[in-house]
Amino acid sequence: MVHRPVSGVRLDYLLLKYLHVIGAIVLLGTGTGIAFFMLMAHRSKDAAFVARTAGVVVTADMVFTATAVIAQPVTGYGLAEMTGVPLWEGWLGLALILYGVAGVFWLPVVWIQARMRDLARDAARAGRELPPAYHRLYRIWFVLGIPGFGSVLTILWLMIARPAL
Rank of each mutant, 00 (worst) to 15 (best):
G55Q: 04
G55C: 02
G55S: 01
G55N: 00
V56E: 01
V56D: 03
V56P: 02
V57L: 08
V57E: 02
V57S: 12
V57A: 14
V57Y: 01
V57M: 08
T59H: 08
T59S: 12
T59P: 05
A60Y: 00
A60K: 03
D61S: 08
D61N: 13
M62F: 12
M62R: 15
V63F: 00
F64A: 13
F64M: 14
T65N: 04
T65R: 05
T65C: 03
T65S: 12
T65P: 05
T65F: 06
A66G: 09
A66C: 11
A66I: 13
T67S: 14
T67G: 13
T67Y: 02
T67M: 10
T67V: 01
T67I: 00
T67P: 01
A68R: 03
V69H: 03
V69N: 02
V69C: 09
V69D: 02
V69Q: 04
A71Y: 01
A71M: 13
Q72A: 00
P73G: 07
P73V: 08
V74T: 12
V74C: 04
T75K: 07
T75M: 09
T75C: 07
T75D: 01
G76S: 07
Y77T: 15
G78V: 05
L79P: 05
A80W: 03
A80R: 10
E81A: 14
E81N: 12
E81M: 13
M82C: 06
M82A: 14
M82V: 06
M82G: 00
M82P: 05
T83L: 11
G84R: 04
G84F: 00
G84E: 03
V85Y: 01
V85L: 08
V85G: 01
V85K: 09
V85E: 05
P86N: 04
P86V: 06
P86C: 01
P86E: 09
L87H: 10
L87C: 01
L87Y: 09
W88R: 12
W88Y: 12
W88S: 12
E89W: 10
E89F: 08
G90R: 08
W91P: 09
W91Q: 06
W91V: 09
W91K: 07
L92W: 03
L92I: 08
L92M: 13
L92V: 04
G93K: 03
G93A: 00
G93N: 03
L94H: 05
L94F: 06
L94Q: 11
L96Q: 14
L96M: 15
I97D: 11
I97Y: 14
I97G: 12
I97C: 12
L98D: 04
L98I: 09
G100L: 11
G100V: 12
G100H: 12
V101E: 09
V101A: 11
A102T: 07
A102H: 09
A102Q: 10
G103T: 10
G103A: 07
G103V: 10
